[in-house]
Design a protein around this nucleic acid. Structure first.
Length: 689
RNA sequence: GCGCCCGUAGCUCAGCCCGGAUAGAGCGUUAGACUCCGGAUCUAAAGGUCCCGCGUUCGAAUCGCGGCGGGCGCACCA
């Protein structure tokens, strides 16, 4: 709340404990009392001391409180409840200090790599991907706010089975379960791909996502109906991988690989568009094809072999595979079969194997690097279509060869001092395997620098699923939620949700300002605010059972509620100036707030100030625990305190200048705090609502 | 079977890390809000065996153990 105050209090408690009882106090916890009337800081230290001193906590608190030697910013102290020592700040001085204090810029300490989004480039993004991207993006903002250097990566599995499956659908539509439908989809997709990247103006970027979404589901159904079709998948995958590895290929295989590459590249643009719309951006797109082409796995494999971390199985069910034995590690205890295959018996590398190589590269421990080029997406003016997360630099992607690469980008990416992988909790097991492999490859401290940011999935309420036209079994209908499945085509598409949010925002605006022309950018801002808050308000280990009504809510604990609060603060300052009254406080006037009569800062007004005072610690705690929902909670607390104040403490009608100054100061703090926290959450603040 | 997560108001969730103040919000329901800075707001009411049991403790939603119910993992898929 006040810089350095915590240290002062800590020292004072330590000193008093030694003087009074000759004891070392246990760890000091500082709490915030549940109500303003109870003060600004609460010390539950007497409860701890009670155990050592064997006396009632209340008595200890009564002795301790007067003995504390505190800085003058603490106006008074009291003993509350069963033994809390509560501190009350000198309100005018504290408010002045908060207003004047420069935002705390932490010292940068190395590079943090945050990897998120990672959507298979074979179909439209769904709301589960949205949770991933928003959580990742908020983490990025949060670390930057705390002064860290952050690099954002969005990994593209452009050579995986999912891409292969859609390519099978494109090349063998006539063999699918519904050949007519399949041919229709395939020809439409080919048409879109044919126009890519210079498609006609007005082309809906999401059309490709929708079409591939349907084709992918159809291919999956077809495999189930006719398992022999999986031969097609195998051949397709073989062609894609062969091309990435630079093998000699038949003309047919070359065409298949080229189609896959074009498909992935075009679908990635759909994803980038969607994410750009909700304010999510990246610095680098690493591609699996480049991991293959660059022989990252060979290098990682050598490291693993040299460290004795992998061995060739000669018998048993894994005969012919290179495996990593996991039974010794405590995290894998009790597993029936604790061996992880890294290289299949046919010589190909598993996803986990490639992931190990990639992770080593991210940590700077692999010893080799990619080449880089600007991402090839350009708008009709020939400008870069997507910009990096700093808002100005171009977006880059990896390359496996030097031809056409940007030599100035060499060595710019990767090599993180810590690496955070934002991946849902269902992937905890493979993530643990990767981490263990890094450790065994000879980089135990690299493993320690690897963090799996795990969060729970987004599922559908049975009602939402049925709204999407899915017929559910009675069993499913009775469940709390049903899992989404890209394979089955069961899920809410990200773009559809965004569209509905925008439509609803337009409706709401027109309700409020009838006759005015709908302002699309305002509606977009509100839609994004609603979406981002919805995706971040739940604890990360909570399954979100997606419900349209909840996602589309604009009242209560929502983004628009927060935006409205911020807009209101701006409105008040504007109104003040219209009336010729002083608005924003300059540095000099802010400092003068310290000399105001404390009576101008009553409990109602102080409540909001006290809440704003917890912003920095909230950022720190959120970063430490990776719990970004804390930021939403905090913003809502500030918003609620302010909205309440709005009705009880009018500023235009303040009795006198002094009272108005106190209120303006509090309002300014609120405005700044909301801007700060909403900025980290990526919730835009519109000019008007 | 083993591992992880969840169980708090009709619904959706905070609080649990670090035991302590009357268990808090939002939605929904009901009743209200000034010729006044925009009602996407605010005020208030009703609504709770904090899944169950045992234990630790002066004190348990919070810690430990044992259950119950639900979910997710445990591939030569990703």
């Amino acid at each position: 709340m006040i810089p350095g105050l915590k240290n002062h209090v800590e020292a004072a408690v330590k000193d008093a404990c030694r003087r009074l009882w000759d004891v070392e106090p246990p760890r000091l916890v500082l709490e915030t009392p549940p109500k303003v009337e109870l003060g600004d800081l609460a010390l539950p230290i007497a409860f701890e001391l009670a155990k050592v001193l064997r006396r009632p906590p209340r008595k200890i608190a009564e002795e301790l409180a007067p003995a504390l030697e505190l800085p003058s910013i603490v106006a008074r102290r009291s003993v509350e409840g069963g033994g809390y020592v509560n501190l009350f700040l000198d309100r005018p001085k504290a408010l002045a200090a908060m207003l004047v204090a420069a935002p705390e810029a932490a010292k940068a300490s190395g590079k943090v790599i945050v990897e998120h989004t990672n959507i298979n480039p074979n179909k439209a993004a769904h709301i589960g991907h949205l949770r991933n991207a928003v959580l990742g993006d908020v983490l990025v903002h949060l670390f930057r706010r705390l002064g860290k250097h952050v690099e954002v990566q969005n990994y593209l599995d452009d050579t995986g089975v999912q891409v292969a499956d859609v390519v099978v659908g494109l090349e063998h539509a006539d063999e699918l379960a519904e050949p007519t439908r399949a041919e229709e989809l395939a020809s439409e997709i080919r048409e879109v791909l044919g126009a890519f990247p210079d498609d006609a103006p007005g082309t809906e970027p999401r059309r490709l996502g929708d079409l591939t979404w349907d084709l992918y589901a159809l291919v999956t159904r077809s495999y189930a109906a006719d398992p022999s079709l999986e031969e097609r998948r195998k051949a397709t995958l073989h062609a894609i991988e062969g091309a990435a590895l630079g093998h000699e290929l038949s003309g047919e295989a070359r065409a298949t690989a080229a189609l896959a590459s074009r498909l992935a590249e075009a679908v990635v643009r759909c994803h980038l568009k969607t994410m750009e719309r909700i304010g999510v951006s990246y610095d680098l797109l690493p591609r699996e094809s480049d991991i293959l082409g660059r022989r990252f796995w060979q290098k990682a494999f050598d490291l693993l072999k040299a460290a004795g971390a992998t061995q060739l199985e000669t018998e048993g069910k894994n005969a012919g595979c290179w495996v990593m034995k996991l039974e010794g590690a405590k995290e894998f205890e009790g597993m029936e079969d604790a061996d992880k295959v890294l290289v299949r018996s046919n010589g190909t590398v598993t996803y986990t194997g490639k992931d190990v190589a990639y992770q080593l590269w991210k940590l700077g421990d692999l010893g080799i690097d990619f080449e880089y080029e600007k991402a090839p997406y350009v708008n009709p003016f020939g400008e870069a279509e997507f910009i990096a997360s700093d808002g100005t630099s171009p977006l880059y992607r990896t390359r496996h060869d030097a031809e056409g690469a940007d030599p100035s980008a060499r060595g710019r990416f990767g090599g993180g001092d810590s690496v955070i992988n934002v991946i849902d909790v269902r992937q905890s097991y493979p993530q643990k395997v990767v981490k263990e492999a890094v450790r065994r490859a000879g980089f135990p401290e690299g493993a320690d620098r690897s963090v799996h940011f795990a969060y729970e999935m987004v599922a559908l309420t049975p009602a939402s699923a049925e709204l999407l036209g899915v017929t559910l079994s009675d069993e499913d209908r009775g469940r709390a939620y049903v899992e989404m499945s890209g394979r089955k085509g069961l899920g809410v598409k990200a773009d559809d949700l965004v569209e509905r949010l925008v439509e609803k925002a337009i409706e709401q605006i027109l309700d409020r300002q009838p006759g005015e022309r709908p302002d699309l950018s305002r509606a977009e801002a509100i839609a994004i605010g609603a979406l981002r808050v919805y995706m971040t308000r739940y604890s990360r280990n909570k399954v979100i059972a997606f419900d349209f009504d909840e996602a589309l809510a604009f009242e209560g604990d929502t983004g628009p509620y927060l935006q409205y609060a911020a807009v209101r603060t701006a409105n008040i300052f504007r109104k003040l100036e219209e009336k010729g009254l002083p608005g924003l406080l300059d540095a000099e006037e802010a400092a003068s707030v310290g000399a105001l009569d404390a009576a101008h800062l009553d409990d109602g007004l102080w409540d909001v100030v006290r809440t704003c005072g917890r912003t920095q610690e909230t950022f720190e705690k959120a970063a430490e625990t990776f719990e970004v929902s804390l930021l939403v909670r905090h913003a809502l607390a500030v918003g609620a305190a302010f909205h309440h104040l709005y009705h009880t403490h009018p500023i235009l009608q303040a009795e006198n200048d002094e009272s108005r100054r106190a209120r303006r100061a509090a309002l300014q703090l609120v405005a700044r705090t909301l801007e700060d926290v909403l900025g980290v959450l990526g919730v835009p603040i519109p000019e008007r609502m």
